[in-house]
């Protein structure tokens, strides 16, 4: 009996040390592991919300077509019908949110049209291409081609 008692203090000390160690571990873990970590995998679940919360710049075609029905009509059946509006007009979410306050600027055809339609052997064979220097003088492309329906009839 006396031997058992003698050992007891030694055991209690060890148990105390273990309890302290485990508590310290749990406290540190709670402090250091961010909220939501491990919810979906080995990462912080809130990172998904962070990635989804960035501001938009491009409004998307549906937003443009809601108002500009005349352009939708003009593009019907044209070879440019499938091109997204903001491919040429640039990012316009601000215009979509405040149509009267923010006005888009007219794109420069000499840069824009040429970028796609200048002859270049890297482009697919069927794609309409012209040697711009031979095709026209320095006038705007839009003098002959309507950008929303480019075919000259």
């Amino acid at each position: 009996m006396s031997g058992w008692l003698k050992d007891k203090g030694h055991l209690a000390r060890m148990a105390g040390l273990f309890a302290f160690g485990i508590t310290a571990f749990l406290v540190f873990r709670w402090l250091m592991v961010p909220a939501g970590f491990g919810l979906y995998g080995h990462y912080r679940a809130g990172a998904l919300d962070d990635a989804g919360a960035r501001p938009l710049h491009y409004a998307g075609r549906a937003a443009c077509e809601g108002c500009h029905t005349d352009i939708v009509e003009a593009r019907q059946g044209s070879r440019h019908a499938r091109i997204g509006c903001e491919a040429c007009h640039g990012p316009l979410i601000k215009h979509a949110q405040a149509p009267t306050e923010v006005k888009p600027t007219r794109p420069d055809g000499r840069v824009l049209c040429v970028r796609c339609h200048e002859t270049n052997p890297w482009k697919p064979k069927g794609f309409p291409q012209v040697k711009v220097a031979d095709h026209s003088d320095s006038g705007p492309c839009t003098a002959c081609h309507k950008p929303h329906a480019p075919k000259i009839s």
């Binding site: 990635a51 989804g52 501001p55 491009y58 075609r61 997204g84 491919a87």
Partner: peptide, 17 residues
């Protein structure tokens, strides 16, 4: 990710002519 979770397409696909 901020676009596709809102039902829009990516900026590159939106502008690819």
């Amino acid at each position: 990710y901020h676009r596709i979770t809102k039902g829009l397409t990516t900026a590159c696909c939106e502008t690819c002519p």
